[in-house]
Write a protein that binds this DNA or RNA. Structure first.
Lengths: 225, 225
DNA sequence: AAAACCATTAAACAATCGTTTGATTAAGGC
DNA sequence: GCCTTAATCAAACGATTGTTTAATGGTTTT
């Protein structure tokens, strides 16, 4: 043949084009609102290729979810484990996760936005991943509690809270672009990470409305240490 | 007529049945995945009634979004304004918002999950609400900064962060029900509010892995004061 | 060269989609 | 009692949905 690429390489190209196109379209319009013909046309492949490679339209979604979740779970396992103090482990977890979210923001949007929907097949698929995530959070963050037993946050609450907190920038990102009031400079991802880490360490740092006591001026909201 | 209800009352009943059914179905399956016939059958009204009352299927969604957003914005305006210190205003805002989310969790899920999608009509509709919300947060939380100019979080970052934080319980709620590991007792809404307020005031309170200093046992993650 | 395998294609499948139409019913104002 | 207005209904509109089929071209294996 006159082409260097083998047939298998071209196949990989087609499969990957479908995948990337689907990620982009699902994130933009949602899973249900995206038709297989739209995917096929945008990816410039034949309609049947989608079912050929992924079995069904839902199969494409499952693949996206698996890819995203497995990466996220790997980060949690790696960064939250260890003997270091909980403070620095959490910081490393947040840093790695937010960067991961930034790289895969479209898959993140799909994973979160398509969350509560009621397709038994998809929901159980996601519950399996979520269960593993909750177990890691429970083992590494919630479980190592002293016998003081001080207000134990259940992992089924903590894991969503952390994830939702880190994802907010990307979840609301597309909407905030359309808002763009005057006084809003966008934060870069590095600063955003610092804000989150600070918030989880010391509380939300907000400037006071200047009052009578100027010494407590720039402290965090709650209390000054 | 033999019925006490006037015609207008019956109409209100039909309109309301459509509305409530749509809220429930949209939250469960998503907007695009829910058909008008499914709404009509579930609400036990004729198919044409939906377009008769709401103009279109999209009109139902807009009504839901307007209802939810206006309530949320009213809370923000009421609770975040005033001369009280930022600390207690934030606490009151969170308390009222989380309770509001709890009452309208289905509308919350719709509003958030359907967020980034690319329907120009809907997106601009939401951007208008979001812009007002951002302005309130900017005026009441971000703007009153001392001349110290201490790490100003832009409102387009803070507003999503707060909203996302408060919503996490309800966004991930349906999924977490399917997870239910053994050691996870669910928090009631009141305790959940306390956790959030504490987090924003002092940082995330997590039990230390017991080390040498038992007095700093139950302190927050970051530092002990 | 024959056989097996894989990727690709056009065409058609039945089902469902959101919306519109025109007729029918019953209520309230005069 | 007449007229206007509003609510409800069955039926149909064309368009699009996800999936399947059978045939074809090219590559690799035997």
């Amino acid at each position: 043949m006159e082409n260097n690429n083998s047939k298998k390489q071209q196949t990989a190209k087609s499969r990957e084009r479908i995948y990337k196109t689907a990620v982009s379209l699902f994130a933009m319009q949602g899973f249900a609102a995206t038709g297989v013909r739209e995917i096929a046309n945008t990816a410039d492949v034949n309609l049947s290729m989608i079912n050929y490679f992924f079995g069904s339209k839902k199969g494409v979604l499952k693949t996206i979810l698996d890819n995203f979740f497995s990466g996220y779970l790997a980060i949690a396992r790696e960064k939250l484990a260890g003997d270091g103090d909980i403070h620095s482990r959490l910081e490393q977890f947040i840093t790695a996760s937010v960067n991961y979210f930034d790289e895969q923001k479209e898959s993140l949007i799909i994973t979160i936005s398509e969350l509560p929907h009621d397709d038994t097949d998809i929901v159980e698929h996601k519950a399996n991943w979520a269960r593993q995530m909750v177990e890691v959070v429970n083992r590494e963050l919630c479980q190592p509690q002293g016998e003081g037993n001080f207000q134990p946050i259940p992992p089924t609450c903590l894991a969503p809270t952390l994830t939702s907190l880190m994802a907010s920038r990307f979840l609301f990102g597309p909407l905030m672009e359309k808002v763009q009031t005057d006084s809003s400079k966008t934060l870069d991802t590095k600063t955003y990470i610092n804000v989150l880490v600070d918030m989880l360490n010391h509380g939300l740092t907000l400037p006071y409305k200047v009052k009578e006591k100027p010494n407590s001026l720039t402290k965090k909201v709650g209390k000054s240490c």
